[in-house]
Nucleic acid binder design. Structure first.
Lengths: 196, 196
DNA sequence: ACGCTTGCCTAAATCTATTAGGTAAATTAT
DNA sequence: ATAATTTACCTAATAGATTTAGGCAAGCGT
């Protein structure tokens, strides 16, 4: 009986593809076994179980996305870097919805720290270097950018902007435009958060 | 044999509580039946099944959140309305993580149109009335606000901002500050999206 | 060719989802 | 009040997913 040549890596990769096809929540050890024409129990030699599989897919997607972002960032700065970076996220989510969903899978703190999540954070900082923001505003800006990118992509993926004009692409470009302007002219902190 | 007094409404409400305790993904018809000390099959008189249950929880949470937002918006305008509205989302997500996750459950278009999702959209528009933005910028602004609110809350919920200074509350306040300023001084569209 | 590791197997237990059909409780009609 | 009807909850059964235990043979090193 010929062997299928399973490894944790191949299973993870196939799991990511499966996620893009049927959705991350629908990724199942059984479906993966079916895809390799192998009995379910065989996967347990390579994976600890269903949760382990999802964690692996999440880490894989996080790493892949970080690689793409790093490549997009190389040799760019300022507004150019901002849009390239943002587009990586949006394009990735569009082309690989299941993997993008996987990047949001909740990891326990140690796993998260060992993941490519830290690379993402570093790139966010690098992005902002051109805009010359001091702490703590730099951190605020990192969080704002992360929120906009993730929030927009996530809402778009759930169909939020699909049934109304103007088109989503137009809003996306305009929003990046505005973020760039905002970062260039970052407002000073108002000591009176109330009205003035 | 005494009856448990099940109704779709009570099941939905209990499902929402269950979601807050164990996570929306872990909400299961079986767990719900256990909670009512009733056999699983009994729930099928009130619910069409697992998917139906999740849709109901999603609609319930969407409605509840819209009610809270409407109450927060009443009698406020401008920056005051902005922060009140934003805080409703963030507080809801913090206090009811399972329900908040439910609000992101993908609904088919007809269901979505019949849901409180449209109320959310209307309130977003109402929020912006004080800032006097013309179309299509008003739509862009609605989408930006939605992205920031959802993105921030979502990242915060997944532990994104928990292990670094400054605290999340500080960033949140600062970001709302900045959004208010941005809406007051909404930049004109640049006809040359490139560099200048 | 030899044994050893291990990849994939069968078998079995447990859980969730769902359907079909039954019984008793609640409701309505007489 | 009692009969008729509706319906809330039940038992039973099927099917798929998860996971563990233990077996056999393929492919490795010697």
């Amino acid at each position: 009986m010929a062997r299928a040549g399973l490894t944790a890596e191949r299973l993870t990769r196939a799991g990511a593809e499966l996620a893009d096809e049927v959705g991350f929540d629908e990724v199942t050890v059984s479906a993966l076994a079916r895809r390799f024409d192998v009995k379910v129990a065989s996967l347990y030699s390579h994976l600890k179980g269903s949760h382990d599989l999802k964690v692996r897919i999440a880490l894989f997607a996080l790493g892949e996305l970080a690689d793409l972002a790093a490549a997009a960032l190389a040799g760019r700065a300022g507004r150019d870097a901002l849009t390239a970076f943002a587009d990586v996220y949006r394009d990735y989510a569009t082309e690989h919805p299941g993997r993008y969903a996987a990047t949001q899978f909740r990891l326990d703190p140690e796993t998260a720290m060992a993941s490519a999540g830290v690379r993402h954070a570093q790139m966010n900082r690098a992005l902002l270097r051109a805009y010359d923001l001091a702490e703590p505003d730099q951190t605020h800006a990192v969080r704002l950018l992360g929120s906009v990118f993730h929030g927009y992509v996530s809402l778009e993926l759930n169909g939020g902007f699909s049934h109304s004009a103007p088109g989503s692409q137009e809003s996306w470009e305009r929003i990046l435009d505005i973020l760039d302007a905002l970062l260039r002219q970052w407002p000073a902190a108002s000591s009176h958060p109330g009205n003035e």
